[in-house]
Simulated assay, not measured.
Amino acid sequence: MNGDPRGPVPRSTVTLADVARAAEVSLATASFVLSGRGGSRSAGSAATKAKVRAAAVSLGYVPNRHAQAMRTGRSGGIVLALGTLDDPWGVQLTTQVRDDALVHDLSTLVLADERWYEYLLGASADAALLTSIDFVENGPNLVRRLAAATHSGLVAFSAKMEPEDFDVVSSTPSFAIHRAYERLRPRHRRVRMLAPDLKRRAGGALAHSRTGAFLDAVRELGDGPAEALVHVVPEGSHETYLAAIEWLQGPDRPEAVICFTGYQAVALHLAAERVGVKVPEDLEFISIGDVPANTEFFGPISYYGVDDVFARLSSIIIDRAIDREDAPGRLVTFDWEFFPGTTTLDDE
């Protein structure tokens, strides 16, 4: 009589000790490699790590993440508190972190709202990137309280904080916005800003630091009234696209625009193509923030951003996740520069 067609039933659950024995390494080394700490020196050489992972796959070893977190204080996961899923910048960063994290057996979780403090206070994570600190009430103090209450390797994306028991990435676009305005203004009587209606944040769009930098640039050159040059539209890529079509077909059609984010620049580009506005001859625009190439449909968009930002930021997050024992906080500053595309004319 033939055996069970589903194949043999394992004699018992495969344990970490079985993996260590098959890989001919110590139990501690196997634990380091398979617990998400594979980047640590304690995990051994690259060949050792590969041998442990191969043994785990061969034996069908499945780690108990809950027990692992209870034992080590590590969850095998990275949290990215991005606040939204609309911005291609966040999508590109998530893709980069996911690919880099999987090499270290770490999973990636995205928070699409700004309740990062409440979530992380009750959850276990090996590292967490917090992006909206400067725009939520009492944000810096919430980060300090999280650092004191949890064991998560925190990376604070903030222009207002200094490192303590966590890393700080300082990357402010204020200077870039001034430069963008100065770049467009000589060719146009008015330069506008396309901004999202930030109803969820106190003060809305006009209270945001990016809008504030634009208003300062307008006033410094004696233009204005400054607030009248900010064109606020509903949040979201599709909503921005529809609003941009209406704007480009209306009596107040812009000739030069600074886009608050990359996704707004993409939406504006699509709208211009839809209504037949020539770019850059009849409409010049610059994105504040990187525009991933796979979101550009009609040539590269001119933008101010950080060179190789996704790989650099991912590296900081992964380092915090795999080697955070007694690691002091670091301050990393990202400088912004101009990347010309097809949406601006050549400077004379």
Rank of each mutant, 00 (worst) to 15 (best):
S12N: 12
T13M: 07
A17C: 08
A20Q: 04
A20K: 13
A20R: 06
E24P: 11
F32Q: 15
L34V: 03
S35N: 14
G39F: 04
R41F: 03
S42R: 14
G44Y: 07
S45H: 12
A47K: 15
K49I: 01
K51I: 02
R53N: 09
A54Q: 12
A54G: 13
A56S: 12
S58K: 14
L59Q: 10
G60H: 08
Q68E: 14
I78T: 06
V79A: 15
D87Q: 13
P88W: 03
G90S: 08
G90Y: 07
V91I: 13
T95N: 14
R98P: 08
V103P: 11
D105S: 12
W116G: 12
E118K: 15
Y119Q: 15
L121V: 10
A125K: 08
D126L: 06
D134W: 03
F135C: 15
F135W: 13
V136W: 07
V143N: 10
R145V: 02
A147Y: 03
T150W: 10
G153W: 05
V155T: 06
F157L: 07
A159R: 11
M161V: 00
P163G: 01
F166T: 13
F166A: 07
D167R: 13
D167W: 04
V169T: 08
S170Y: 12
P173A: 07
S174M: 02
I177S: 09
H178W: 03
L184T: 05
R187S: 02
R192W: 00
M193F: 00
D197L: 11
R201M: 01
A202I: 07
G203D: 00
G203Y: 01
H208T: 07
H208V: 01
F214R: 10
D216H: 12
D216L: 14
A217K: 10
A217T: 06
V218Q: 05
E227K: 14
V230Q: 06
V233A: 13
V233H: 11
P234F: 00
G236V: 01
G236T: 03
S237F: 09
H238I: 11
Y241A: 14
I245G: 14
P251I: 00
D252Y: 04
I258F: 02
F260I: 02
T261H: 14
G262P: 07
Q264R: 15
A265L: 00
A267L: 06
H269F: 00
L270S: 12
A272H: 09
R274F: 09
V277Q: 12
P280A: 04
E281C: 05
L283T: 04
E284R: 14
F285A: 04
F285W: 02
G289S: 09
E296K: 09
P300Q: 10
S302V: 00
S302G: 05
V306F: 07
D307L: 06
D308Y: 06
I317R: 14
D319F: 11
D319M: 14
D319P: 12
R320D: 00
R324E: 02
D326Q: 09
G329S: 01
V332M: 02
T333I: 04
W336Q: 04
W336P: 06
T343M: 01
D347V: 09
